[in-house]
Every structure is written in structure tokens, then in C-alpha cells.
Write a protein that binds this DNA or RNA. Structure first.
Length: 222
DNA sequence: TGCCAGGCCGGGT
DNA sequence: ACCCGGCATGGC
């Protein structure tokens, strides 16, 4: 399995090139994006983040002190705006209450402890927590998303009913085989590559498996 | 036009 | 332990 995942990465890297993933200017911006992108197109998220930036509101303490309705108005393009306004503020409130408003302090603990802390926030589930850990906190915590599940399932790399933690463990064990200074980049880029595959080749009603770069790894071929 | 997007929560079985 | 409805916009 380790070998297959490594080979999959080489195929994806060759097709898409290294991804400048999660183009956030700050760790906080990445956290905001991680929450806003829940079940939502990234393009809509960018508009919401741009609204925040234009209103000088892309700041943890400012978001935390904002009225829910005002925040919801700014993030409207991201959808579920009332829900997500509450979730954003639940996150900033936790940082303020537990870490004195310093986001960096959140990431000082061990990965598992940070993850647990994140999961206690209402509105942050496994995927959002792992995204924040991996991309905002530079922690080695693999992200499982809908694309990952679809791709892995289609290639029979996991059983059809594997849960989030099953897949996360599988990926992390495989990716841990790689060591070196570029290990973090490898984990970050791996998820980015899977999203590229998912968007272009592995959508529910438009599989396009015939032209997928991972075609050589399909069960019938291996 | 309808379907879908980088989920999560709360309530019900 | 699963299963489901709700949440909402913008793009193709």
C-alpha cells in the first residue's frame, strides 16, 4: 500500500505539478478558509474572504468582536452564512479564551492535543481540524475529504465503508514512510493533488476515469 | 435546468 | 453506532 500511494503521488505530481496550496497570507486566513469551505465551492469562499479583507476584518480579534449578522453579511457568498458566522466566532472565541487570542499558541502543543482542542469547537469536525493543523499549523495531520474517500474507494485502496479515522490512519502510516526535511510539504501537497484529481476526474456523475492520471493504478490494471 | 461543491450538528432510530 | 434533514450561495 505504501508503494501504491507513493506511485500515485508521482503520477499526480507529473500531471499537475507542485501545488501552491491554500493560498492564505496568514495562518488565520487559512483557518477561516477551512471553516468557510465546508461543503462549499472554493471559489465562493474566496469571495467571502475578499469581503472580509476589504472591510479590514480578516483578523482574529476583529472577527471575535463582530456582530453575528454583520459577519454573516460579509461571508454571504460562502453559503450557510448564518451557520458559518457562528462557527467562525466559536473558533475565535476558543483562541481568545484558551490562548489569549494568540493563534500561534494553539499550535505549540503536540499534534493530537491540538486536534482534540480543535474538535471541541462547535462547527469544527475532523476534516476542518486536520486542514487547520496541516496548512495553518504545519502539523503532520492528514486531511481526508470527499475526494479522498471517492478516489480511494474507486481504487479499492480502502473498503467501501471505511470511516474517516480508518482512512486517516492508512494515509498517515503510508506517508510516514517518507522522511526528511520536505516531509511536511509532501503531506500538504499530497492532499492538494488528491483534490486536483477529484475536481477534474472523479466527480460523482462525470467520472472521466478513462483519462485520469491514476488510470495505471486502477484495480483492473494492477 | 438541476445538481453539486475541499462538512458538521442535532435529533431520531 | 449509523442515518437523515438542515444549512445557502454561485457555477456549470
Amino acid at each position: 500500500m505504501h508503494h501504491r500511494l507513493r506511485k500515485a503521488y508521482k503520477l499526480m505530481l507529473g500531471e499537475f505539478g507542485h501545488q501552491a496550496w491554500w493560498p492564505g497570507d496568514s495562518p488565520f486566513e487559512i483557518c477561516v478558509g477551512a471553516i468557510l469551505t465546508q461543503n462549499t465551492n472554493w471559489q465562493n469562499v474566496e469571495r467571502a474572504i475578499e469581503n472580509l479583507r476589504e472591510h479590514q476584518s480578516l483578523d482574529l480579534l476583529i472577527v471575535n468582536s463582530m456582530e453575528n449578522d454583520h459577519l454573516a453579511t460579509l461571508i454571504r457568498p460562502a453559503g450557510y452564512y448564518n451557520l458559518k458566522a457562528r462557527r467562525l466566532k466559536a473558533f475565535t472565541k476558543m483562541i481568545v479564551d484558551v490562548y489569549g487570542g494568540r493563534l500561534d499558541s494553539l499550535f505549540e502543543a503536540e499534534t493530537h492535543a491540538v486536534r482534540k482542542q480543535l474538535l471541541e469547537v462547535n462547527g469544527i469536525g475532523p476534516e476542518t481540524a486536520d486542514s487547520i493543523l496541516l496548512y495553518a499549523g504545519n502539523h503532520l495531520s492528514f486531511v481526508i475529504d470527499a475526494y479522498t474517500k471517492r478516489i480511494f474507494s474507486r481504487h479499492s485502496w480502502v473498503s467501501h465503508n471505511a470511516g474517516y479515522d480508518d482512512m486517516k490512519q492508512l494515509c498517515e502510516q503510508s506517508l510516514s514512510q517518507k522522511t526528511g526535511s520536505d516531509r511536511l510539504d509532501y503531506w500538504q501537497d499530497y492532499h492538494a493533488q488528491l483534490v486536483m484529481i477529484g475536481k477534474d476526474f472523479c466527480r460523482p456523475n462525470n467520472p472521466r476515469c478513462d483519462t485520469c492520471p491514476l488510470q495505471p493504478l486502477l484495480p483492473s490494471e494492477s
